[in-house]
């Protein structure tokens, strides 16, 4: 099961960071970055299966493929900005983490505009 691998990696990274922090805080931050990357790698493969299933559902129910790919892009942006924001927060600068989150939200907003417009078109089409 991946959950044991996940817990093992997380605990090992935490121990390594705690050991390194008093002597070399900068390398401790790099160790926590590497640990975070390892955890993310565990789940990127399983995510591809989920996305394949969703795209199948999308094609069956007639959702236009552009909307679905925009949705996927939004999830990807959220995924990466969350990762970067947590790394910045770990290394101590909270304001940078909040700025990364705000930037991610703006990017997602830009991506969401076509979805909203197509939703409005559908609603207008339904109304008498």
């Amino acid at each position: 099961m991946e959950v044991f691998q996940l817990i093992g990696i997380a605990l090992l990274t935490a121990v390594a960071v705690i050991i390194l922090r008093p002597h070399k805080p900068e390398i401790a931050m790099i160790v926590s970055l590497a640990g975070g990357l390892m955890v993310l790698f565990l789940f990127v493969e399983t995510l591809s299966g989920v996305i394949g299933g969703f795209s199948q559902i999308a094609t069956q129910t007639g959702v236009p493929i552009t909307l679905f790919s925009a949705l996927l892009r939004i999830i990807g942006i959220g995924y990466l900005t969350e990762f970067a924001a947590n790394i910045c927060e770990d290394s101590g600068n909270q304001s940078l983490a909040h700025k990364v989150v705000i930037g991610g939200k703006i990017l997602i907003l830009v991506m969401a505009i076509p979805i909203v417009t197509s939703l409005i078109d559908i609603i207008v089409g339904v109304l008498p």
């Binding site: 970055l33 996305i51 790919s69 990807g76």
Partner: peptide, 25 residues
């Protein structure tokens, strides 16, 4: 610090390429 950064750098590049392919970013 530089050596450990280089070690982590190719992992970050790997993650970015897989996420890019996965989410068509």
């Amino acid at each position: 610090v530089i050596i450990s950064l280089l070690l982590v750098l190719d992992m970050v590049a790997d993650l970015f390429s897989t996420v890019r392919n996965l989410f068509s970013l």
